[in-house]
Design a binder for these strands. Structure first.
Lengths: 128, 128
DNA sequence: GTAGAAGTTCGGGTCGACGCGAAGTCAAGG
DNA sequence: CCTTGACTTCGCGTCGACCCGAACTTCTAC
């Protein structure tokens, strides 16, 4: 049992994505699998974990190029990027929090017109 | 002072976007300004508030078509959509929270390899 | 050793959300 | 009247992320 190398089909299925996508991500420098002598992609457990993490990161709003740097960049740069993304996620979270509050408010707001409702106006003119 | 109608240039500048964008959003059915006799767009205070809200909603991940429905759809449908988006925002928030925790962890994680770190693995295999 | 499943490369297509510039229109000042 | 500047429509270009099919090669099970 030589460290469970899976081919692209299995890997894609387990991850719930298409094989096209895995090739695309490779082309974008996100994840680079090993190759057999004949050129077929083989994904080991490490890479599959990295892929899973990449998916989560993407859901958190990171671009493919950012994720690629995160996974493959030099350690120093990597640390900086992680911290940066951490901040970005926090800002994103703050925005979402305001949005959630606003939507909650809208559900019970009786003002027919935004301008007449201080809470709506507050959201409209909230920082970034 | 007849309810401050602004032209597209002023409106765009105050909002920090391009005039192209405002026309684009109109074409997508997001916001439909009044027109002068000659066909020039005029944005009243109400519409400008709506625009500001649309911008926030977009930052919260909503698509233009969703926003268009939110702003212009029939009240019944609107309520449903708001509730739906509210839920989506919450799910999004939950994901971001996990991501933030993961990034925090990565900043102080000493394991050289993801597979060897239970916390990293936990994030990799966390629900959606 | 060979069939057929699964893989490969390559190039073009789609979708959402824009940007951009050309060519024409309108309104106000000199 | 004419200029000037902000506006109009129209259509094509871009970018990120992705899907898809054609044509060919490799892998694997029998």
């Amino acid at each position: 049992m030589t460290t469970q190398l899976l081919r692209i089909g299995e890997t894609a299925e387990r991850l719930g994505v298409s094989t096209h996508l895995l090739r695309h991500w490779e082309a974008e420098g996100v994840i680079t699998p090993e190759r057999t002598a004949g050129g077929a992609r083989r994904y080991g457990p490490e890479l599959r974990d990295a892929l899973a993490i990449a998916v989560k990161c993407q859901h958190a709003g990171m671009s493919l190029s950012t994720i690629a740097q995160l996974l493959n960049g030099p350690p120093g740069e990597r640390r900086r990027l992680v911290a940066e993304q951490r901040d970005a996620v926090d800002r994103h979270r703050a925005r979402l929090e305001r949005t959630a509050a606003f939507l909650d408010h809208v559900l019970r707001c009786t003002h027919p017109v935004v301008r007449e409702c201080p809470e709506c106006r507050a959201f409209a003119s909230s920082t970034p």
